[in-house]
């Protein structure tokens, strides 16, 4: 079974992936796929919105004779990410409390 992923959490994951190093669309989807069941169809609008909100920036780089669009996190994005992380830790703690024993911290 899988847990449905909320948009806020998806934002946080995308920001986290991009904060590690500048990266491009395909790589982001591949990385996220290891953790969540998410198709690119939901990813593009997310990244576009994050970009419009000034949390991401893009730049183009040539790769094998074509363009590849790289995503880069901004100051606003980093700030949002740290807030997301804090919120997530808190949320996880509460869920773990209810789920009880056997949950490693």
């Amino acid at each position: 079974m899988s847990f449905p992923i909320s948009s806020g959490l998806l934002d946080a994951l995308v920001l986290a992936v991009i904060s590690n190093s500048d990266t491009y669309g395909y790589e982001i989807t591949q990385l996220l796929r290891t953790a969540v069941d998410v198709s690119e169809s939901t990813l593009y609008p997310v990244m576009r919105r994050l970009q419009k909100n000034g949390m991401l920036e893009t730049y183009d780089k040539e790769f094998q004779g074509r363009n590849r669009r790289y995503y880069k996190i901004t100051e606003i994005g980093l700030e949002a990410l740290s807030n997301y992380k804090r919120e997530w830790t808190e949320h996880k703690r509460k869920v773990d409390q209810i789920l009880g024993e056997g949950i490693s911290a």
Binding site: P4, S6, S7, G8, K52, N53, A80, E87, H91
Partner: peptide, 22 residues
């Protein structure tokens, strides 16, 4: 409905000063 699960989390973000346009 989907968003509900982390509803509270997001609600807090909505009040945050770092809020984006949305």
């Amino acid at each position: 409905q989907q968003g509900q699960q982390f509803g509270q989390t997001q609600q807090n973000f909505n009040n945050g000063p770092q809020a984006g346009p949305y």
